[in-house]
Design a protein around this nucleic acid. Structure first.
Length: 890
DNA sequence: TTTGTCACG
DNA sequence: ACGTACGTGACAAAC
């Protein structure tokens, strides 16, 4: 008979992690959970001789359980990084064992296993479920035995239905009721307060189920009765949460769980990487690993040379090796590359890695190395080179010839990859390369951040440099395969150099203008504060949503419109609704507006002005936004106020860095809707842009069925909201919210829009289908975004993915276009020998500083370049303006 | 460190 | 029946 072993991967990894003493390999990688997991696997294989084997993992942060109950698993501590960094290792190890692993977005491991045990029941297979979680007992049956780990991982306690009866006096399914009553603190399932295992069992022996207990709550006495009646809903919900879902739409079947044993050399290699020497001996694998994987061997025995100016041998060795360099890694410490420390630069060739501390790089003896760094002809493959370029520049070291960047490539290959997946350590895991420790493991984080002693530090930096060249090889192939080669080499890579130039240049900010504005704000804020205290009849911290909520909704008794998960909502939407009820509201809104200006834009920006130059240097991040947009940090110069006049004044502080120059700004007009017209091919929308019509008026005229000249301002306003909605992936709920109309009315608007723009409707339908089919969507330049949740059974997750499928090609193509324009613009400025400088990008806008004698030329050149960045079926349009500061350039 | 709020496109 | 508009970053307060 078939024998299946079904392992709850997350649960067992957790148990193993806490059961085993800390264990790390030579490079600082934690391996204790992997070790514990391995010993358990070996024991199971030996004792059970399974025909099928599977490890299930939780996937994604949000599961369908969160749908009804936002706090599900809320109380749970975050997985420590020492454990989370081991999951990739465990998954890798399972591959080496030849054991299959399932995970499915939106479901937990429990549910996958629950589904498979149902299949075991149906097919008459024998199954052993292994977990650390007693919830699993509900799955026990004649066919299914559940093994729960007991102290450590390799010792388990087995439960058949008979044993559950013996121990609890319950049938397996009643385990759900047990949990419904007693709750589970580790999953933040409430249950009924005051009811623990003892009481819950007593109640169940008497009444049988949660429902029956609730029905007969009248029979209970005293405190117990009160508690049960008070928490009926909690009990029902807790039961629901504890119920394992047994109908997961699995993408893999039983066939894929078949287990036929492991291959010795493969497992040997895995153990060797993990440094599990005792296990290798135990399985008699010691001889197997030799020569298994050249690259891996090599990484384990890197030859590292630390270079100093005094060490002639090292200098000679470095010099002779430079032509053979395949990768470079420079360790930058600090989040803001404009205020960072570069520790050292490592350069890797296949034979040897040289590590040069920054102080040595700056010495006379290393002149040849600086020359190599600055040579555009010596091409370099590195990691996060945009940051490196800035950091080095501030230390007087120039770097050129950057040809490939592993971080940038990782972003293109998966722009939604998390922070940790964009590190060298994370990428090595992804590509199955020899592990490199995570920065956090080596340096610690937050207050505990500390560089290790030199030898370990250099070894770590060298290991990263070596990993970079291996990663780059894998990525180049992947970029080619996914059609993003050109996007990478012709756009993103050149753009990163352009960005570095803009950032190093910075933009001049006139501190006195900001201070002046700050002084005015201070007076008004103070005045508002007094007025609010008076109207409230008490003093409190207006900036505290908690205290403000208490004042408004408890003391003043205003109606509660919306709640957040921690209390009353007091956001601007809510406050505006409350305005008719109390005079305090307008003052609070104004206070909020002005104190935001004061803290973020007056105080915040002043801190960012370099005292010696008067410039502000932002840092554009090229690997953050899932759509391909840039983001801006330290400070963010992409969200400087403009919508309200009070804030807009801040822009007066952004001035040219040379006397007599001008600020010039050019922005794309309706770029997203033009992109939509192009990719949807909708004739009406295309015609509107071909005739350069006011797009919102045109939409209003079509949606409301009136002549354009009869469109009033209200109709235009609503049409504008519809257009926004279309770009965002429309829903009637969102539109109704935005316009303050009913959902029905919103749905009608949308229907009318789609009737008028049928090509757009077709695009929206097609793109969602395409996303479902391919698992991703693309922009015009083939930028890709994966949407795994498009197939989720959870409505929320799926709907979100569908809207994203509609929005990303639009927002992303617009991002592609302005990036093209930037690279082209940079070229033009150089080729024409112009002194004008490109300073900022704000998604659809470029800001320049321009000498007077180039003003006329730039007024035509900038829009020309922007409009011709790419040719679409509709014209692109850029409006240009200029003035003595950014405020005037409007 | 997380949450609520609000600034931008 | 479900319950949301897309993409970001900074700040103050609360935990």
């Amino acid at each position: 008979m078939d024998k299946w072993i079904l392992i709850d991967g997350n649960s067992i990894a957790n148990r193993a992690f806490y059961a085993m003493p800390p264990l790390t390999n030579a490079s600082g990688l934690h391996t204790n959970a992997v070790y514990g997991f391995t010993t358990m696997l070996l024991k199971l294989l030996e004792e059970e001789k399974p025909t099928h084997m599977l490890v299930a993992f939780d996937a994604g942060k949000v599961t369908f359980r969160h749908e009804g109950y936002g706090d599900y698993k809320g109380g749970r501590q975050k997985t420590p990084s020492e454990l989370s960094e081991q999951f990739p290792l465990i998954k890798e190890l399972l591959k080496s064992f030849g054991i299959s692993q399932f995970e499915l977005s939106g479901y937990e491991a429990d549910d996958i296993i629950g589904t498979l045990t149902r299949m075991a029941d149906e097919q008459g297979a024998e199954a052993l479920v292994v977990s650390g979680d007693k919830d699993m007992l509900q799955l026990a049956s004649n066919q299914v035995t559940v093994a729960i780990t007991r102290k450590g991982v390799s010792e388990v306690e087995r439960y058949s239905p008979a044993e559950i009866q013996e121990k609890y006096g319950l049938v397996p399914l009643q385990i759900i009721d047990l949990k419904g009553l007693m709750g589970d603190t580790s999953d933040n399932i409430p249950g009924i307060p005051g009811v623990g295992e003892k009481t819950a069992l007593k109640l169940l022996h008497e009444y049988g189920s949660v429902e029956q207990v609730l029905e007969h709550s009248g029979d209970l006495k005293g405190k117990m009765k009160e508690k049960v009646e008070q928490h009926k809903d909690d009990a029902i919900m807790s039961k629901k949460l504890a119920t394992i879902f047994r109908e997961v739409p699995l993408e893999q079947g039983v066939e894929e769980m078949k287990y036929s044993g492991y291959e010795k050399p493969v497992l040997a290699e895995a153990f060797r990487k993990l440094e599990f020497k005792s296990l290798m001996e135990r399985l008699d694998l010691t001889g197997e690993a030799v020569g298994a994987e050249g690259a891996a061997q090599e990484a384990a025995n890197l030859t590292i040379v630390s270079v100093t100016a005094e060490d002639d041998d090292a200098l000679a060795s470095l010099a002779s090796m430079l032509p053979k360099v395949e990768s470079i890694y420079s360790e930058v410490i600090g989040d803001n590359p404009h205020q960072s420390e570069t520790v050292a630069i490592a350069v890797a060739s296949p034979d040897v890695i040289h590590v040069v501390p920054l102080a040595e790089v700056q010495t006379e003896a290393l002149g040849f190395f600086r020359e190599w760094l600055a040579s555009a002809d010596a091409s370099k493959t590195g990691f996060d080179m945009h940051r490196v370029e800035l950091s080095l520049a501030w230390h007087g070291v120039s770097i050129k010839g950057i040809a490939f960047d592993v971080q940038l490539a990782a972003y293109l290959l998966d722009p939604t990859s998390t922070d940790s997946a964009q590190t060298i350590s994370g990428l090595c895991g992804k590509y199955g390369l020899p592990g490199v420790a995570s920065d956090e493991a080596v340096y610690g984080k937050g207050a505990k951040f500390k560089l290790p002693e030199t030898e370990a530090l250099h070894a770590f930096i060298a290991a990263k440099a070596d990993a970079v060249r291996h990663l780059a090889d894998k990525q180049r192939a992947e970029l080619e395969k996914s059609g993003m080669y050109k996007l990478y080499y012709d756009l993103e890579q050149p753009l990163s150099r352009v960005l570095a130039g803009m950032e190093l240049q910075g933009i001049k900010a006139d501190a006195s203008v900001i201070e002046q504005l700050g002084a005015e704000l201070e007076g008004r804020v103070l005045e508002l504060k007094g007025k609010i205290y008076e109207l409230a009849g008490m003093e409190f911290n207006i900036g505290s949503p908690k205290q403000l909520g208490e004042v408004l909704f408890e003391k003043l008794g205003l109606p509660v419109k919306k709640k957040t998960k921690t209390g009353y909502s007091t956001d601007a939407d809510v406050l505006e609704e409350l305005a008719p009820y109390h005079d305090i509201i307008p003052s609070i809104l104004m206070y909020r507006q002005l104190s935001k200006l004061q803290s973020t834009y007056v105080e915040g920006l002043l801190k960012e002005i370099r005292p010696n130059t008067g410039h502000i240097h932002t840092f554009y991040r090229q690997t953050i936004a899932a759509t391909g947009r840039l983001s801006s940090q330290y400070p963010n110069l992409q969200n400087i106020p403009i919508r309200l006049e009070e804030g807009r004044k801040i822009r007066k502080a952004f001035v040219p860095s040379e006397p007599g120059w001008y600020m010039l700004a050019a922005d794309y007009s309706q770029i997203e809707l033009r992109v939509l017209a192009h990719i949807s091919g909708d004739q009406g929308l295309k015609d509107a842009f071909l005739h350069d019509m006011d797009i919102h008026t045109k939409t209003a005229s079509d949606v409301f069925g009136v002549q354009p000249e009869d469109v009033d301002s209200n109709m235009r306003r609503q049409a504008k909201a519809v257009n926004f909605g279309i770009v965002y992936g429309i829903s009637d709920f969102g539109l109704s919210n935005n316009l303050g109309i009913t959902r029905k009315e919103a749905a009608q608007f949308i229907e009318q829009y789609f009737a008028a723009f049928q090509g757009v409707r077709k695009y929206m339908d097609d793109i969602v289908m395409q996303a479902r089919h391919d698992g991703y969507v693309t922009t015009l330049l083939e930028r890709r975004r994966y949407l795994p949740e498009i197939k989720a059974s959870n409505f929320n997750l799926r709907s979100f993915a569908e809207r994203t499928a509609m929005n990303t090609p639009i927002q992303g193509t617009a991002a592609d276009i302005i990036k093209l324009a930037m690279v082209k613009m940079d070229q033009e400025l150089r080729n024409r020998g112009l002194k004008s400088r490109m300073l900022l990008q704000v998604h659809d806008e470029l800001v320049f500083e321009v000498p007077e004698d180039e003003l006329e030329m730039m007024k035509s050149l900038v829009p020309e370049v922007m409009e011709s960045a790419i040719e679409l079926d509709v014209p692109l349009k850029a409006d240009v303006s200029y003035g003595h500061n950014w405020y005037e350039a409007k």
